[in-house]
Simulated assay, not measured.
Amino acid sequence: MSALPALRDAIRPFLRPLQRALGPARRARWQARYLRDGIEGIAMELRTTTRHHADLLRQFGASVGSEISIHGPIHIVNAGNDFRNLRLGNRVHLGTDVLIDLADAVIIEDDATLSMRVSIVTHLDVGQGPLRARRPREQGPVCIRRGAYLGLGATVLHGVTIGEGATIGAHALVDRDVPPGATLLAPRARRTPEREG
């Protein structure tokens, strides 16, 4: 099995020009998918492709900086007709299975890291049921400032800004603004006292 990675590394330099040459055909295929399935079809491409995430996002309206790292799949929901509500700065890292709700703007500034399974949620809508009278739709942009770090499975709710250089621990639920440089941690699992019995 170790021969296969070595072979892949050996032929990679020869494949790069071929991949560049296929770029226009790839973009044409994405346009055809958009015409057929709309932005949901492109969102599905983001879930299934192993590379080209940044190109896909740019082609369909997102502002994407340089040297970004996206380990797909990436899940984008509520995008409307395009990804214009998404802005990724330079050297942003998105881990596997990041979910981004684009009902409102999402801004992720330079050098920010979103670890695996982070969720960015820009709205709350209980639907058409009886709760609607008590819980009307809420919506707001989310901003992750420069150099912030969000740990595995963290969730950021609508209207929240994560300050520059802040750290959000694994599985934390963030429902209010986080000051620059602050650290927020989710409660740890703890052992309960043994029952006498």
Rank of each mutant, 00 (worst) to 15 (best):
Q19I: 07
R26I: 03
R27K: 14
Q31I: 04
A32N: 05
G23Y: 08
L7P: 02
R36D: 13
A28Q: 01
G38I: 02
S2A: 14
R29F: 10
P5W: 01
R29D: 02
I39Q: 13
R26D: 13
I39G: 13
L15Y: 09
L35S: 08
R29N: 12
L18A: 08
A10F: 05
A3K: 08
A25T: 04
D9T: 11
L7T: 00
R16C: 03
R16D: 06
L18K: 07
I39P: 15
R27T: 00
Q19Y: 09
R12H: 11
D9I: 03
L18Y: 04
P24R: 00
R27F: 02
R27V: 06
L7G: 04
F14I: 07
R29V: 06
Q19E: 14
P24E: 06
D9K: 14
A10K: 13
A10C: 02
A28I: 03
R20K: 14
F14N: 11
I11V: 15
G38F: 00
L35K: 12
A32K: 10
A21T: 06
I11A: 08
L7K: 11
R27H: 14
A3I: 05
R26K: 15
R8Q: 15
S2N: 15
R36L: 10
R27P: 07
R33P: 03
A25P: 04
I42L: 04
A28Y: 02
Q19A: 13
L22F: 10
R33A: 01
R33C: 08
L18H: 03
L35C: 05
R8M: 15
R29E: 04
L7M: 12
I11W: 14
R20C: 03
G23R: 07
I39L: 11
W30T: 01
Y34I: 01
R8V: 13
I39D: 15
Y34E: 07
A28W: 11
W30R: 05
A32S: 01
L7D: 03
L4Y: 15
P13L: 05
Y34F: 06
G38D: 10
Y34D: 00
R20I: 00
A32I: 05
R8S: 15
I11Y: 15
L7C: 01
P24F: 09
W30N: 05
R36V: 02
Q31H: 04
A25R: 01
P5H: 09
M1V: 03
G38C: 11
R27M: 00
I39K: 09
L35H: 13
P13Q: 00
R36P: 02
A6Y: 10
F14Q: 13
R29A: 13
A21C: 11
A6M: 01
L22N: 11
A3W: 04
A25Q: 11
R16H: 02
L7S: 09
S2Y: 08
L7Q: 05
M1G: 12
I11F: 15
R20S: 09
G38P: 12
G38S: 04
P5R: 04
F14R: 14
S2Q: 13
A6V: 01
R29P: 07
R8G: 12
R33T: 04
